[in-house]
């Protein structure tokens, strides 16, 4: 299984990553190698197998819907790269 440089660029865009030319070539090769490893799974007939999405078969727990205090606005904003008047600040998105 090999993937092309164009596919890798497309996926990078989906993941919001920008790859320079030095990063791109080895990544195409490495991803192809990893996907080659993954190809082995095709040997197995899994038509009748239910997918396992959770490590343990347990019911989804429920809890009362109560309001509990969490961190303050100041604490949550303290790590933000840029804030203004109690909000996160981002570049202008509407012209």
């Amino acid at each position: 299984m090999s993937i092309t440089a164009d596919t890798v660029k497309h996926v990078a865009n989906l993941a919001r990553l920008k790859l320079d030319d030095q990063e791109l070539a080895p990544l195409v090769q490495q991803l192809s190698n990893i996907l080659g490893l993954v190809e082995q799974l095709k040997e197995l007939d899994t038509d009748a197998v239910t997918p396992m999405s959770h490590a343990l078969d347990m019911p989804i727990p429920e809890r009362p819907d109560l309001v509990v205090p969490t961190s303050t606005r100041e604490a949550m904003l303290a790590n933000a790269p840029d804030t203004e008047q109690g909000y996160f600040r981002v570049p202008k998105i509407i012209e």
């Binding site: 993937i3 890798v8 996926v11 990078a12 993941a15 919001r16 990553l17 990544l27 991803l31 996907l35």
Partner: peptide, 20 residues
């Protein structure tokens, strides 16, 4: 640019694989 500059090579590789 935040993600490209902030993550290292192995993390990017796994994000790429997972996204694919």
């Amino acid at each position: 640019r935040t993600r490209s500059e902030g993550f290292g090579a192995e993390v990017k590789r796994r994000i790429m694989l997972g996204t694919y």
